[in-house]
Design a protein around this nucleic acid. Structure first.
Lengths: 283, 283
DNA sequence: TGGCCGGATCAGGAACACTTATCCGCCGTG
DNA sequence: CACGGCGGATAAGTGTTCCTGATCCGGCCA
């Protein structure tokens, strides 16, 4: 299971085409075909159906393994490179939408040039691990003392930068708007807005509530909080947000989320220091 | 970064010898030397000091990446193999020492032959992932709603099999033995017994208490609970244990651990089903 | 000082991993 | 129904890689 084969396999699966994968990888179509054949021979399973190109059950399974493996290989290489020769140039800071301001504040103390990148919650750990960023400020939702999920790509240092209670944002005229606290389980059948980059992703709400439901008619892939608040105020659905961003008087209210104890957490992601012990959570 | 090179590197680092690694891997010493040289050339860093053979700082860092990567590669291969051809032969069940009885009970409902392996807490997930075991029952300590750490080797199914409160085991004549509840932070300066396979490992207590200390004069690597209870009763140190195993009247008492909410958790580890969605926690 | 232990280096041959060229099955089209 | 083209499979050839076996070299101990 040569990583090269694994890589071409993932590209073929993503593009659903051997020829297109060949172009993207800088190989010939023949080489790509041989790569996939070699992988299939090695594992003794057919990984892709051809024409149309679709991963088989085994292929889908392999993809679930391949991507983290390739990510870790890239992270290892980037980390060792960084360790060998500290990078010149401006400090590259990344931040998820909700904490861009905090990232800017954090960086003001620093000397020299700075570039500030806004990224997806899922992308940030990857970009710090692969040395696309020197520093990342990331937010998300978790149980009170838990770290945010999905950062274990290797020995990365994680520091908690801030914790804040969460509220359910509802339109001012919502029947539950006068309540002082709400339990998530009672809201499974409500209508939600799916804003995975700003609010708590619905998949996560389902997981922590241990219930299905949380149906969303409106999806909000944007990164602007004000926009989401307007959507909620207009009655398109509820959203779980950090308490600080929901100010009263804008046509909507925030009610404390009581039952599954959940906090909004801001974490600073940094490559592990040159000599220190690994800070990762690897078993 | 060919996995073969990575593997040789880890073996050389572990055995602290090129020649010994060559024997273990079935290569010549020459090949091993070339492997390490190739890896060092590829990454542009010296990974090992020679004579004596010791990992450099960069080498140590690489080891932290290499081991999970190789483990995942092995897990992927094992999983696909299992998916391709269901294994014949007896059902192989693994269990950590504290839950061997539960594992046996769990397996009695099954037809056919059965082998029961007792393993280390750290080893069990690895052995299930690499298809050395068909099923694993594992215990450990965690915050009330958290999963046990260190199982994310891929899309493995994890089911909670039981949760139990924890107590601090103290000798009957200990000054704190009459208390009804204890906070871990108050016990950082006490003397402990380090029994990582039966009790809560001291490293974990330090982590959840957010404090140093928890010094142990006695280390108990064994897997026998009765033995550990005797050691605690004899006054060699304290231990955090599931409430159920500490019965009063044996010269020691168990006092509920109140402050860092901690439970003893038993998890059933199974390979993900053939067609189901990945059950792992991969980001 | 000489022998030995252990890693580095060198030369050569087998195996591998690309390329180019060609083939083959499928599908839409005139 | 023949044809052409699209897309993946296969074949042959070649440069590179990756082993082994032989040898070298530096440090250590007797």
């Amino acid at each position: 299971m040569d990583p090269h084969l694994l890589r071409t396999f993932t590209v073929v699966a993503r593009l659903r085409s051997f020829s297109a994968a060949a172009v993207e990888l800088g190989y010939t179509q023949s080489a790509v075909s041989q790569h996939v054949a070699a992988l299939e021979a090695d594992l003794g399973v057919r990984l892709l159906d051809r024409r149309p190109v679709t991963p088989t059950v085994a292929g889908t399974r392999l993809l679930a393994y391949a991507e983290p493996i390739l990510l870790r290989l890239a992270a290892a290489r980037a980390d060792l490179a960084r360790l060998a020769a500290p990078r010149p140039g401006p400090l590259r800071v990344g931040a998820t939408p909700l904490v861009v301001a905090a990232a800017a504040r954090l960086a003001t103390g620093r000397r020299g040039a700075l570039t500030l990148h806004v990224t997806t919650r899922a992308d940030l750990p990857r970009r710090v691990a692969t040395d696309e960023l020197d520093l990342g400020l990331r937010d998300g939702f978790a149980a009170p003392n838990d770290p945010l999920p999905g950062a274990d790509l290797g020995p990365t240092r994680v520091e908690v930068h801030g914790v804040e209670p969460v509220v359910v944002a509802l339109p001012r005229d919502h029947p539950l708007a006068a309540r002082h606290r709400l339990a998530l389980a009672d809201l499974a059948l409500a209508r939600w807005v799916d804003a995975p980059e700003v609010a708590a992703p619905l998949a996560q709400l389902r997981a922590v509530a241990g219930a299905d439901g949380f149906r969303a008619d409106v999806r909000y892939p944007g990164t602007d909080v004000a926009g989401l608040l307007a959507v909620v105020a207009a009655g398109h659905g509820l959203a779980v947000l950090p308490a600080g961003v929901v100010r009263a008087g804008a046509g909507l209210v925030g009610v404390a989320l009581a039952d599954p104890r959940l906090v909004h957490r801001v974490e600073l992601l940094r490559p592990a220091p040159a000599d220190g012990p690994p800070g990762g959570s690897e078993g």
